[in-house]
Design a protein around this nucleic acid. Structure first.
Lengths: 246, 246
DNA sequence: CGAGTTAGTGTAAATCTAACAATAAGTAGG
DNA sequence: CCTACTTATTGTTAGATTTACACTAACTCG
């Protein structure tokens, strides 16, 4: 029988990209309000207490799976959040009382984040999550607990990581156009990037390979497809990218 | 009466600079070996469980003070470490049994680091620390628990921070020479830096002001003193340094 | 076949990086 | 006084990188 650690939780900030915009996975932790006899929607990051004997990294994956059904997502830590009052707002306490045996216990949470191809991961809510949905990052409203703070930090961490390790190729199909790749970077950084400069820089890096194939059936000049050169990428990781700024 | 949180600790990686080399503050957590009837030296980072109702940042300061007497040192988080087996080596367990009421409890630790002027902070061991000493980072041997891992991570974080926020001026006297400043950067990055390029870059940043005064009594050409332009520094922080690479 | 849409391309100016060596100003010791 | 020693100080050049900027190409749709 697994015991929960009453003092340590993990919250997951899962970013998803849909070729258009950056999203984040939220759950509706829900709550039945007995005063008004209705259901209240309260969005939160997927997160929960960890088990006593579980690795943090594994706990992050388990928590995410328990609440949203999504599996095998490798996330990275971005910080620990331990304000003693972070769970004590009235609405947070009401909710905690409905699911925790020690709702007033002080909990330090460890934040984990990752970025995935949104359409590959269709969340299915379970446990105390009443629903689990992808929400555009720019449209996220007030979240439970201190989760808006966590989201901000996670986004900073994502951007930071992108500078030293151009992740993100796994977010695109095996054959992608440079415009798609550019859109990914624009979505994450939330700003426009010059097309010509972007292409020059990516191509010089050498991590994409031009394919013979082109788009078909589009109502404009068809774009050439590229593929991701994983070997070259690993090579560069060894050397150390230093900084890759766009 | 304050209660300790049995599951959460803080470890402090305090770096100190002495105008020559980068040091780190370690404690000898000590232990009397009843088999061999002698004292065993076991170096560790200053760290301990936090109190139930304490902010993490404040906890970090308190822990550091309790063990080494050093106060008012603002540290930054660099990660959480939660391997369930991180405290279970034989020697670590022997020691924990001598001071904790629940020595086998699983503890997640939050790492904090900072960088200070070494000579301004003379540690005085107390609590379970038998001594507290500055050790050159390059000479650190095997530490207790997973503290070598923490030290590595803290050093990476320090270097990383230095790229986006050239801290370190508080580590030098109000009037310093550019060679001293350069030595600081060299110590942290553990490599030589070209003198001419370094000077050009620092001066262009505009965060140092040339003074009229020069060194006196040195057996070589006296160096000019500079002071740190804090206003200009704050200004740059606002704009965002982007990256400051040496 | 014209309108609409996205793809694709080059260049110049400014800035930054990296590599490199000779002279200057003091003290110390004879 | 003179020499040896030590550290300080300074500039240039070639190459790479950054930034800004506008027109033509290729396709579908109506």
């Amino acid at each position: 029988m697994k015991r929960l650690n009453p003092h340590i939780s993990i919250d997951c900030v899962l970013f998803g990209f849909d070729f258009e915009n950056l999203h984040v996975l939220l759950i509706d932790r829900g709550r039945y309000d007995s005063d008004f006899k209705n259901e209240i929607v309260q969005y939160a990051l997927p997160g929960d207490l960890i088990y006593m004997d579980e690795q943090l990294d594994e706990g992050a994956q388990r928590v995410l799976k328990d609440l949203t059904g999504l599996q095998n997502i490798f996330m990275e830590q971005f910080g620990a959040f331990g304000d003693p009052g972070r769970l004590s707002s009235e609405s947070d306490q009401r909710w905690l009382k409905s699911i925790r045996s020690e709702p007033e216990e002080r909990v330090v949470t460890i934040g984990y984040y990752s970025l995935v191809k949104m359409h590959d991961y269709i969340p299915v809510a379970s446990s105390f999550a009443r629903s689990a949905v992808w929400v555009p990052v720019n449209e996220v409203a007030e979240l439970a607990f201190d989760h808006n703070i966590l989201l901000d930090k996670a986004l900073s961490a994502l951007r930071q990581t992108l500078q030293t390790r151009p992740i993100g190729f796994n977010l695109l199909p095996p054959k992608f156009t440079l415009s798609q790749l550019q859109r990914l970077y624009e979505a994450i950084h939330n700003r426009d990037i010059d097309k010509r400069n972007f292409r020059r820089k990516i191509i010089k890096l050498g991590i994409v390979t031009e394919l013979a194939e082109k788009q078909e059936g589009v109502a404009h000049k068809p774009a050439r497809f590229f593929s991701f050169d994983k070997d070259r990428y690993e090579e560069l990781l060894q050397e150390g990218f230093e900084n890759f700024k766009l």
